[in-house]
Design a binder for these strands. Structure first.
Lengths: 121, 121, 121, 121
DNA sequence: GTGGTCTAGACCACG
DNA sequence: GTGGTCTAGACCACA
């Protein structure tokens, strides 16, 4: 179900976090749906429960899921739609880019951030 | 030149550090300008050289000045606050861009944000 | 009563789950009202009882219904969304209150926030 | 310097986080000042470096400090003043309390959150 | 040296 | 069983 890439420069917990964020925002995981337990998912992916825990903790801090001790973790009710969230992110990038330009950032420096995904591994 | 207040709860080295930070950020001390030597300043202020040393050490760690052994200490070339802030902004942009890409944003969409200057709110 | 779409990428159990969630939240299914039995609904919709079972299981985990072995499944007494949301708010208040206390807020200051109703913006 | 209480129901990392937050907001730790390294502090407090790391990570996420790999952790430039931050928190509490009341929370329930500091240990 | 990630495994409180 | 905290210790990249 979840796909991990150990050659990916992103930490494991980050890959998991983004994957779940995508699944929840896209609706593939419905609001209120139970997510795999920390231990189960750790077993399935053959990684340490702490790593799952960290991904879940950050998802909870960001409002994407709710963890209930003793019961499990559930996708949050009414998370923003994927398209909405994407537009939000783009708007924030636009705003930050303007600020950076004021502080002397060049267009090349800005472009470098966009490409800094796989090349700088 | 430097104003110390012994009733101030902040330690002396901290007052010195903040004072120099303020002077450098405001431009009162120009980029590259030589700062008073540790011993000179200690004599002028009638305090222990170690106190000055600590203030200088933290200023260097934070990038406000550069110490050259045998030559002295110099205000950093570009205002570190500005440079630091710019780097922070770039890092945030990088992070947000990655998130947006996970949510399906194209490179073109991202580029559009960088070019959006003043035309649109 | 329930509308299933086999072209929908969401699994059937998920469609059922969301449909019931919607019905319960909207009040179309009243608190305490009996839901169709797993076997009845499976027959009506011509699908596998396990599929219904899973939808009901997740609805119960999320607090939308209560299954009483031998009697059936019933919509939860109070809208779980409302109750859940209220609990979330209380938890946030608790957390913020602790932070405020760390920063020196007095109990009286906190109490003042609770009593501030509509008088002040 | 930092004081830990193992009878305190708050997790260790939380005590550390709040303590540093208080020190930074009060100005006791000045903007830009270097904080003790993860390993040093762990040694001093006789706890695991991971626990310090978590506290620092959350402080960085909240904007109170900046961690620079290879260099150290530094208090953020220009953090909000303690009084400002406290007022912010109080305003948020007021806002959340109103919402909770709309959802049926009683005054007693709200009060319980304020007292839920030491008594429910 | 620094911060950061990850593993392995223990323990707790809650249901 | 669940999530959550903490320890001990390894490894990495960076400077």
């Amino acid at each position: 179900m979840l796909h991990l890439d150990y050659r990916d420069p992103r930490p494991i917990y980050e890959q998991i976090r983004q994957e779940f964020m995508r699944l929840i925002l896209s609706g593939a995981i419905a609001p209120g749906e139970k997510l795999p337990s920390v231990r189960d998912l750790a077993g399935t992916l053959s990684i340490n429960p702490n790593t799952i825990q960290r991904a879940y903790r950050e998802l909870e801090a960001a409002g994407y899921l709710i963890s209930v001790p003793g019961k499990g973790s559930f996708a949050a009710e009414s998370s923003p739609l994927q398209a909405q969230k994407k537009q939000e992110l783009l708007a924030q990038i636009r705003s930050l880019a303007r600020e950076a330009i004021v502080l002397g950032a060049t267009r090349d420096e800005l472009l470098a951030q966009l490409d800094a995904k796989e090349e700088e591994a």
